[in-house]
Design a protein around this nucleic acid. Structure first.
Lengths: 227, 227
DNA sequence: TCAATAGTTGACCATTCGGTCAGATTCTTC
DNA sequence: GAAGAATCTGACCGAATGGTCAACTATTGA
């Protein structure tokens, strides 16, 4: 299952992922992780303080360290969680699939990620803004291969005339940026639109918009596709 | 000239923008501002330390405070600088302009911003990730009006059949996110593509890609436009 | 029941944080 | 070259930082 390749150099494998632990531990760890995700997403690794995380979780600082060991270990564990959710989306595609279906499903699932896990998206964004000190290996390894494999399929479609011969990597970046924008820049989106929050039908409307632009923009046939 | 509306509550107007000061002051302030932009962009407001900024600028910490007064004043001044560059792009458009020309110029100028001032873009991104504590007023005021005025023009074009009736605000967000991506997520882009840096022709290629997707995706006539 | 294990937490530590200040040095101006 | 302004900076301050630890309580299993 790969895990998020190295991810720094801390040994964190003592309780690796699915291990349960007591019911108390499970509940407290979940609460700490959720609180930490919010604080790290907002203030970045250096800007987040254990005190702030502890207060957000409603626990004394010592308790946070009791469960998480150190600030770095906590941060790395959060990143691993983000990468894990990311990997769920890693279902394979082939040249035999329908471009319109694959692209629209891709856009939809990325929009749902932004909708369901905005904090995770922001945490990732913050890590990248810092220069990706902990995720270098992931970017240059797993994620790069993922992009390359998709790119090859896109190129195949283009050769068969199913879509315009656009640069596949740029296309992937376009979809990533446009979808993540609504999580990472939520404050900007809300400020400009004057809304308090984005509702389900906003997301639906934006998804439809992006799908239309991308499919039409790439010259993908949408015959027989419900949009 | 509007300035960046309030921007926090610190009184920073003692040396407002174009005021020169001695040659020494001018040089040192510039060096400090450039260093601070890098550090704030990477670590966020809370994560950036005056010590780190001072080292980056090659000056003692006391000197930074001598010129900038306080951490908050330094940060606000940087944001004002970013907004100022932003406002340069604020040239007006009208329904009489050619949609293809306006949209492609818009994409090009945003890509150039990402190319020329990546640190400024990241600083802005970091501020938004924090929930835009200092830029709330700017977002809800100036920027909102800017978006609305553009949206009205886009709608006019759609009514006259010059482009598809897509949601103009979503379109603006799409262009913003896609272009800023190459500055804000540079570490990701470089990691995935395995490059050391993005060159001028990369930017040119990406600009052409985005222009093609957006124009075609919006159903804009590109007759007689050099692309 | 009772010992072992797990969980809790305040006191404390060295370091770093943003910021102040006094005194030294350098630059300008006449 | 002297007076005054601008610049420079090490010493220092209280508060906050990440982290340790020992003493304590709660839970669990035999």
């Amino acid at each position: 299952m790969a895990k998020a390749s190295q991810v720094g150099s801390t040994t964190l494998d003592r309780d690796n992922g699915q291990e349960a632990g007591g019911a108390i531990r499970q509940r407290n760890e979940r609460e700490i992780l959720e609180a930490a995700e919010r604080v790290f997403a907002r203030h970045g690794y250096r800007g987040a303080s254990l005190q702030a995380i502890a207060e957000e979780a409603g626990l004394p600082k010592s308790n946070v360290l009791y469960y998480m060991g150190s600030k770095k270990a906590l941060y790395v564990r959060l990143l691993e969680g983000v990468m894990e959710r990311w990997n769920i989306m890693l279902d394979d595609i082939s040249e035999d699939d329908d471009p319109a279906e694959v692209l629209s499903a891709f856009i939809r699932s990325k929009m749902e990620m932004s909708r369901l896990y905005p904090q995770a998206s922001r945490l990732f964004a913050s890590e990248i803004l810092q220069g990706a000190p902990f995720l270098q290996d992931f970017l240059r390894g797993e994620l790069r291969e993922w992009v390359e494999s998709r790119a090859k399929v896109f190129r195949g479609w283009a050769e068969r005339g199913l879509m315009d011969p656009v640069d596949p990597v740029s296309l992937i970046f376009l979809i990533w940026s446009a979808t993540q924008h609504y999580a990472d820049f939520e404050a900007q989106v809300l400020g400009i639109t004057g809304r308090d929050a984005l509702e389900d039908d906003d997301i639906e409307r934006i998804t439809a918009f992006l799908t239309q632009i991308v499919l039409k923009g790439c010259g993908v046939e949408t015959a027989g596709l419900r949009l």
